[in-house]
Design a protein around this nucleic acid. Structure first.
Length: 771
DNA sequence: GAGTTTGAAACT
DNA sequence: CAGTTTCAAACTC
């Protein structure tokens, strides 16, 4: 048996290098390529690998698919040393797949090498291309599961796609079934044809012999295998594979691969009766099992079927609904979009967040908008997550999709944060939930909104309020609309770009997935009227520039309400005030009267609670004759770091809209400022944010001297047309993150009266409507 | 929980 | 664009 030898030889290599990207690359260059790695690699690379975790995806097809998978994998890891064409068309060990499938598997010391033999797949390229989808189908795609019939071929069909038929070199006959029905015999639960592809008849015979000698061997193996799955997995599997299972059950044929893809194989192998199997493998099958790894059984990290499938399946965010719906429309996919949330799948990797996700099940497109649809207000804020996501994506091809999504998702960086949080709770709560899109979505949202069980009592206003406060950062809203049908901005849910959920006490609510058409239409209408209507109300600069590392952004003052408030009686000290509610100071955009916003007064005298006191104190000391700039200077002297943001960034940022002269809703204005900021931010190093202060002061002073400007409150910098970028850089550390939904960057003319409107960090709102 | 206050959103 | 109305959240009792 030449097989064992090969295995032994190759195994070390795999163990040592399989994880190495470099090694993978080298392997990709390997002349020994049974499969067209190049082509596959492209498609595969572009595809999120994370899909693989779907354990039950296509048990039957798995093995048949495995060759393809391997090939794809080769594509990814084309040069896989473990794969050789020596004696077989394709000989690969499980370790390879595992490696290819997931990096995490490597972490384990186990070496599972299964030499399989598969004939070239004529459709492999297509399959490779499609594979991710197929594999991702997991529980969702019953069709993905194909019965591993006794025949040498198994076709896996997934949503309109047919996977390659990969004939196995040898089918194990095994011991005859009691019934003898069908060609397959129930001998070893894991049919050799399913689990292994023998490179030679001798191997098959050896395997049979082993099985025969150990009557319970198969049962044990199967039990062990199945025990690895959670009830949810099993149920999901059963649902999707019901037909197949029934069919097999009738035939008394055990499902060969409850596990997904390579992971499934790996798990299967791990769960095998090692005493028997190991011997057999060592001798006949070139399968090396590291018994030490057996401890990890069930912790097939990369393919950890249990959590992953559930997670994906369970993830539902209503917040994504709008976008999803839109996407679905765009893609013309009528399928349940609820699973889009799945795109969030690997949030842990992503960041802290996740908000975003990599895998989509059927429709890649869906995956592409992970961040979109999140609570917009929350999303508006930071780029940290966004960046993190990107990095995370780079780390793994599995997350490639995420990257695409993230980058394409209109700068909704923050979504990751909230998403992650939401997902965290949702993931667990939604597990086992019905796959019904709508229901699930709501559930997900609900989960999102109410991570705490206590919050289940959503009818209590106080609780709601409290919940709202708690979840305020989590981008989950709930409303109590009575007349608006939750289709107006009055509705917080609708305004936030999310569907209403159960906790909402709204009446006649139309802001639900079932009315998505209405919702989208309404949305469009409102957006047509005000493109930024759904943009975050509060633009948080602090979150926008994670990489800057400067502390300037950390003060509430660094964030501003995009439009400013119009408070008359509340003094901007109550939540009636959107600025206050948003935890940001009032800005020059505000038309409030008697502003006492503790986060920062409109006049700029107050940066935040502490700063305000400092400033006030400074004012007193300096005298009323001294302008605000003096106060700012005083404050800055006392605490340059904190004072700066408020003093400088605040006004600058706030000037997104002119207080009175500039219509808050002027898109063009916003665009202008956005572009400026964007340019500044993108092209400028973060360190530049620090320098501007003096300059700002100068402008500010000048501004004060110039009473002609909007009440003299507008810093000259903002008014100046000369160097928007510079100004912005100076004033806005976040400049790089500015994104306007409608970006006419650079084309926007200066605002009237030379005033520049700076809309910072307004995440491009997911345009559900394709304008 | 009901009623009031408040200010944003929508409308004219 | 300003004024008014509608609306729902925030708040008070």
């Amino acid at each position: 048996m030449d097989t064992p030898e090969k295995t032994q030889i190759a195994a070390p290599l795999v163990s040592a290098h399989e994880d190495s990207p470099v090694f993978n690359f080298i392997r990709s260059l390997s002349p020994i390529k049974p499969v067209k790695s190049t082509h596959i690699a492209q498609t595969f690379t572009s595809l999120p690998f994370t899909a693989l975790p779907s354990v039950f995806t296509s048990p039957h097809a798995n093995f048949h698919k495995d060759p393809s998978f391997l090939r794809r994998h080769q594509s990814l890891d084309p040069s896989n040393p473990d794969c050789s064409s020596e004696n077989h068309n394709i000989v690969c060990r499980n370790g390879d797949f595992i490696n290819g499938i997931s990096q995490r598997s490597k972490s384990s010391d186990k070496k599972v090498s299964v030499e399989v033999h598969a004939e070239p797949c004529k459709e492999h390229s297509d399959f490779a291309t499609e594979f991710p989808q197929t594999s991702r189908c997991g529980f969702y795609n019953p069709e993905a599961m194909t019965t591993c019939s006794a025949g040498a071929e198994a076709a896996v069909e997934t949503a309109g796609m047919s996977t390659p038929i990969i004939p196995v070199a040898v089918k194990s006959s095994g011991k005859p079934l009691p019934e003898g029905e069908g060609q397959q015999q129930k001998e070893w639960p894991i049919d050799a044809s399913d689990l292994f592809i023998f490179s030679s008849p001798n191997d098959v015979e050896a395997f049979r012999e082993l099985v025969h000698r150990s009557p319970d061997f198969g049962t044990v193996c199967l039990s062990s295998l199945m025990s690895r799955f959670t009830p949810d997995d099993v149920s999901g599997f059963e649902r999707s594979q019901q037909v197949d299972l029934l069919s097999r059950e009738q035939q008394q044929i055990e499902p060969p691969y409850p596990t997904d893809e390579a992971c499934g194989q790996k798990e299967a192998i791990k769960n095998l009766d090692y005493h028997n199997l190991d011997k057999f493998l060592d001798k006949y099958m070139s399968i090396q099992l590291d018994k030490n790894s057996h401890n990890d059984a069930g912790t097939c990290v990369p393919f950890d079927y249990t959590p992953v499938p559930n997670f994906h399946r369970g993830l539902r965010r209503r917040c994504l609904d709008f976008e999803i719906a839109e996407l679905r429309k765009l893609s013309g996919d009528d399928s349940d979009y609820s699973h889009i949330a799945l795109s969030q799948h690997d949030e842990n990797t992503l960041v802290n967040d996740g908000q975003l996700p990599v895998e989509s099940e059927d429709d890649p497109l869906r995956c592409t908008l992970p961040g979109i649809g999140l609570h917009l207000n929350a999303l508006a804020t930071t780029s940290n997550d966004y960046q993190s996501v990107e990095h995370g994506n780079l780390l793994s091809e599995n997350q490639l999709m995420n990257t695409q999504i993230s980058s394409s998702s209109l700068n909704l960086p923050n979504s990751h944060q909230s998403l992650h949080e939401s997902l965290t709770s949702v993931a667990s709560e939604d597990i086992g939930s019905a796959d019904n899109g709508v229901l699930v979505v709501q559930d997900g949202s609900q989960s999102c909104a109410y991570p705490d069980s206590e919050e289940l009592d959503h009818n209590s206003p106080q609780k709601k309020r409290r919940k709202a406060e708690h979840s305020e950062d989590t981008a989950c809203k709930r409303c109590n609309c009575k007349k608006s049908k939750c289709l107006k901005l009055y509705c917080e849910c609708f305004a936030a770009g999310v569907y209403c959920i159960e906790p909402c006490a709204c009446l006649d609510c139309l802001n639900k997935p079932i009315h998505e058409d209405t919702v989208l239409a309404t949305r469009k209408q409102i957006e047509s009227r005000n493109p930024l209507a759904f943009a975050p109300k509060v633009i948080r600069a602090s979150d926008s520039f994670p990489d800057t590392g400067d502390d300037f952004n950390k003060t509430p003052a660094s964030a501003r309400h995009k439009r400013g408030c119009n408070c008359k009686k509340s003094g901007c000290l109550k939540k009636y005030c959107e600025c206050y509610q948003g935890g940001v100071g009032c800005s020059f955009n505000c038309r409030c009267e008697g502003c006492k916003n503790s986060f920062g007064r409109k006049d700029g005298s107050t940066l935040n609670g502490v700063e305000a006191e400092i400033i006030d104190e400074g004012k007193e000391n300096i005298g009323k004759s001294v302008g605000n700039q003096r106060s700012l200077e005083v404050a800055k002297q006392r605490d340059p770091i904190q004072a700066t943001p408020s003093a400088y960034y605040g006004p600058s940022i706030q000037t997104t809209y002119s207080a009175k002269n500039e219509p808050p809703r002027s898109t063009s204005l916003v665009t202008t400022s956005s572009s400026s900021v964007l340019h500044a931010g993108q092209n400028q190093g973060t360190h530049k944010h620090v320098a501007p202060q003096p300059e700002f002061e100068k402008h500010y002073d000048d501004n004060n001297n110039n009473s002609s400007n909007a009440g003299g409150k507008m810093p000259e910098v903002l008014r100046s047309n000369d160097t928007p970028s510079a100004v912005i850089k100076t004033a806005s550390p976040n400049g790089k993150r500015v994104s306007s939904p409608h970006s006419d960057f650079g084309s926007s003319p200066p605002l009237r009266s030379g005033r520049r409107l700076i809309l910072k960090s307004i995440p491009s709102f997911p345009s559900l409507t394709q304008h």
